[in-house]
């Protein structure tokens, strides 16, 4: 579905993404993890056309989309959400989702009807008339997801849709994402909430300081010493191992 090959991006002197590659097979949920500032959001921007890579290629569904305009990439079926949510604040939830639906549907009534359907799927059917500006953080994150879903994507890039949510809200959202996958949408998600990463993803990539440092099954990857060091600092894996040995 998606193949990123040796992609690079620097801002001035800072190498935000260095020679990163990843592969997302159709029908799967793949996650991308890594500490803050690792370059995950930048990688999403490179894939979705918001940033132009310095080098490297992005192949989506067999087509080279490197450097294409974001709206064209979306029309091809690859849509992203924003970590810093961007609701259409003065519109209602229904109108927000309908904007996404209009990407495939010209008719206004049909787009609004589609919005109702998508809202039901993500559990926002009770908030349809509410103004997007009045939503809570959890509501906004869901709206971000709903709008993207309404464009009928083949591949959905989710950037930290669980961040800022409490345990109950996370527990509600996990099955929603699973349902979306079951309808045949491939998903690539950036997530810090490990519980969600573990329970949702089939495969995991780890990015640290712009470099892919590990990949594999979520369980294996998260217990690898390199990954633990990336998250917790130098020497952390060793200390953790010692602690476990002592506890045992």
């Amino acid at each position: 579905m998606l193949e990123v090959q040796g992609i690079n991006k620097s801002f001035g002197g800072l190498h935000a993404v260095s020679d990163a590659s990843l592969f997302v097979p159709a029908g799967k949920v793949v996650s991308l993890i890594g500490p803050n500032g690792a370059g995950k959001t930048t990688l999403f921007a490179l894939i979705s056309g918001f940033l132009r890579p310095d080098s490297g290629t992005v192949i989506f569904d067999g087509t080279d989309i490197t450097g294409k305009a974001p709206h064209l990439i979306c029309q091809m079926g690859l849509v992203r959400t924003f970590q810093v949510v961007k609701p259409f604040a003065s519109l209602t939830v229904r109108e927000n989702i309908a904007v996404g639906a209009h990407t495939r549907i010209a008719d206004r009534k049909a787009a609004l009807a589609k919005a109702d359907g998508v809202a039901l799927l993500v559990g926002m059917d009770a908030m349809l008339e509410q103004s997007a500006g009045d939503l809570t953080i959890a509501g906004r994150k869901r709206l971000e997801l709903a709008r993207a879903l309404a464009t009928e994507p083949k591949l959905l890039l989710l950037d930290e849709v669980m961040a800022g949510l409490n345990a109950t809200e996370i527990a509600e959202l996990v099955p929603v994402i699973r349902t979306i996958r079951d309808t045949g949408v491939t998903i690539l998600l950036i997530e810090h909430v490990m519980q969600a990463v573990m329970s949702l993803s089939d495969y995991t990539y780890v990015l640290n300081q712009g470099v892919m440092i590990a990949e594999g099954e979520p369980k294996t990857v998260t217990s690898s010493p390199d990954v633990i060091e990336a998250y917790l600092g130098h020497g952390a894996a060793e200390r953790l191992a010692k602690m476990e040995a002592r506890d045992a």
Binding site: A69, H71, F88, V99, H102
Partner: peptide, 22 residues
Amino acid sequence: RFGAQLVAVRENEDAALALGIN
């Protein structure tokens, strides 16, 4: 549709782009 997309551009241009609006 044109009106909805125009308002979307006013409200947030990046989000509009991401949702496939030229």
